[in-house]
Amino acid sequence: MSQCLNPDCLVINPVTHKFCQKCGQKLWLKDRYQALRLIGQGGFGKTFLAVDLDKPSQSRCVIKQFFPQGQGTGALDKAAELFKEEAKRLDDLGNHNE
């Protein structure tokens, strides 16, 4: 199954579909990552279990979606900064010296 990433939809679609049956949004992020299901959410966004379709192994990964709710401008700026810092740290975790 493929999870729609539209925050107002989130419908589960058949794995063979490239567009959401309900809202019509593309299901594959950057034509590479396919969200399988929602695994968590909080005040600043949602996290989805996903598959990287660009790799031969089609390895599992996560999609972190920044979607803050009910925050003032200062809090929103701080949340965006923290989200970017977390993304950098997660990217560093994926880099290994071989």
Rank of each mutant, 00 (worst) to 15 (best):
T47V: 14
P68Q: 05
V62E: 10
F19V: 11
Q71L: 14
G43E: 08
N6Q: 05
E85D: 13
S59M: 12
L10P: 00
S57N: 15
K55S: 15
Q21V: 07
A75V: 15
F83R: 01
Q41L: 09
D31Y: 09
V51G: 02
A79M: 09
G42Y: 02
L36A: 02
D8A: 06
L82F: 11
C20S: 00
L82C: 07
E85W: 12
C61A: 13
F48H: 03
T73N: 12
C23E: 05
D54A: 15
D54T: 13
G24H: 02
L5W: 01
R37K: 09
Q21R: 10
A75H: 14
G42C: 03
A75M: 14
E86N: 11
L76N: 09
T47F: 03
Q25S: 11
I12D: 00
H17K: 10
K88P: 03
Q21Y: 04
I12E: 01
G42E: 02
F19I: 11
A35G: 01
D52G: 08
S57D: 15
D54G: 14
Q3Y: 01
G43F: 07
L49V: 08
T47A: 08
N13F: 01
F66E: 03
Q25I: 10
V62P: 04
G74E: 13
L36S: 03
G72E: 13
I63R: 03
E85G: 11
L90A: 07
L38S: 00
D8R: 06
F48V: 08
Q3M: 06
K64W: 09
E85H: 14
P7H: 03
F48T: 06
K84D: 12
I39F: 05
V62G: 10
Q58A: 09
Q21W: 06
P14W: 01
F44I: 15
A50Q: 01
P14A: 03
E81D: 12
G72P: 15
D52N: 12
P68Y: 05
G40Q: 04
V11A: 04
V15L: 06
L38I: 05
V15F: 04
L38K: 04
D54V: 13
A35H: 00
K22Y: 08
G74C: 11
G40N: 07
V62N: 10
Q58W: 13
I63C: 04
T47G: 03
A80D: 10
R89H: 10
Q34C: 09
E81Y: 13
Q21P: 04
H17G: 05
G24K: 02
F19E: 05
L90N: 08
P14I: 02
G74N: 13
L5C: 01
Q69E: 12
C23S: 06
G43S: 12
L5Q: 00
K26A: 06
R60L: 15
A79E: 08
D54F: 14
Q65W: 04
F83C: 05
C20N: 00
P7R: 00
V62R: 10
I12T: 07
C61S: 13
K46N: 11
L90W: 10
L82V: 10
D52Q: 06
D8L: 05
L10Q: 04
G43M: 11
P68C: 07
